[in-house]
């Protein structure tokens, strides 16, 4: 069933292997360096090599109430934006998958627009609209902004899964006596569950560390990325910022990693079924 033809691949030249490895390191090493700097005792500069070693900044960061507030806020925003994206994205994917209607192509285009156009466009557009309607900038305006670009992530994941799922499975379920609701519960949902999970986790990660749109749609609220951003232009708490950045990497790493793993495994089992 599963042909392992990949073993007949040609060997890469050492130059290519080296270049590929170099690029991969270039992508990852900078993030490790942040972690390294969380351990520096130096407060005012980024001196390298580190003049010493300490773990005290983690304790300092944990005792900052403003950070906890930001962290909670970011979690809440991401959770609600993800929930909205899950519903809207799944609905759109189901509609596009199940029927061939006029303007089907434009749906994908419309949904992808918020991430295809520069974030600043989405941000300032929302700002002019919200401002123009005299709606106060608040927690909910942040959520509305985030949902616009999270929808497409769920949509893409779920639609891809729908397309991999054999269309006759739904017919088979109804043929065996299940009505639409039973079919959804017993066949559709279990099949798209991991896609929903993957899409949801990516949407969460995307929302959790979004800064560009948020700067335009937030009022006095300080999400974690906004907090970091304020430190970027006017650094006051360098060591604490390092710790926060590390925490953000950790919080987003797991969902992203598992989402990618799920997608990779889904396409693997698809290969086995053929």
């Amino acid at each position: 069933m599963l042909s392992k033809s990949s073993d007949t691949r040609p060997k890469a030249s050492w130059a290519l292997t080296l270049a590929a490895l170099g690029t991969l390191l270039f992508l990852h090493v900078p993030m490790w360096i942040i972690f390294l700097y969380t351990l520096t005792p130096e407060e005012a500069t980024y001196t390298f090599p580190l003049p010493g070693f300490t773990t005290k900044w983690y304790g300092v960061a944990l005792q900052r109430p403003d950070l906890w507030r930001s962290l909670t806020l970011s979690f809440q925003v991401a959770a609600i934006a993800t929930a909205a994206a899950l519903i809207l994205g799944t609905f759109a994917a189901a509609a596009v998958y199940r029927s061939n209607f006029f303007g089907r192509e434009s749906i994908s285009f419309l949904l992808v627009l918020p991430i295809a156009l520069p974030g600043i466009v989405t941000g300032i557009a929302l700002r002019t609209a919200i401002g123009g309607l005299d709606i106060p900038f608040s927690f909910w305006t942040i959520v509305i902004g985030h949902a616009t670009f999270c929808v497409v992530v769920v949509y893409n994941n779920v639609l891809a899964r729908f397309r991999r799922t054999s269309a006759t499975m739904i017919e088979a379920s109804m043929d065996l006596g299940a009505n639409s609701f039973q079919t959804f519960r017993h066949v559709v949902l279990p099949n798209i569950a991991t896609a929903l999970l993957a899409g949801g986790m990516l949407a969460f990660a995307l929302s959790f560390d979004e800064v560009i749109v948020t700067t335009f749609t937030a009022g006095q609220q300080t999400t974690l990325p906004i907090w970091i951003f304020s430190q970027l232009s006017r650094p006051r708490d360098r060591p604490v910022t390092n710790v926060v950045a590390t925490i953000v990497i950790l919080i987003t790493f797991l969902p992203i990693f598992f989402a990618q793993k799920i997608s990779a495994e889904a396409s693997d089992t698809e290969g086995e079924m053929k």
């Binding site: 360096i33 942040i34 560390d209 800064v211 953000v248 990618q260």
Partner: peptide
């Protein structure tokens, strides 16, 4: 996965990393 993790990871934090790397000291 090695390529997509940086793609989805916090853009802001990745910029911040270079602030550390490129600093004069």
């Amino acid at each position: 996965i090695g390529v997509t993790i940086p793609l989805w990871s916090s853009y802001l934090v990745r910029v911040y990393a270079w602030k550390l790397i490129l600093a004069k000291e």
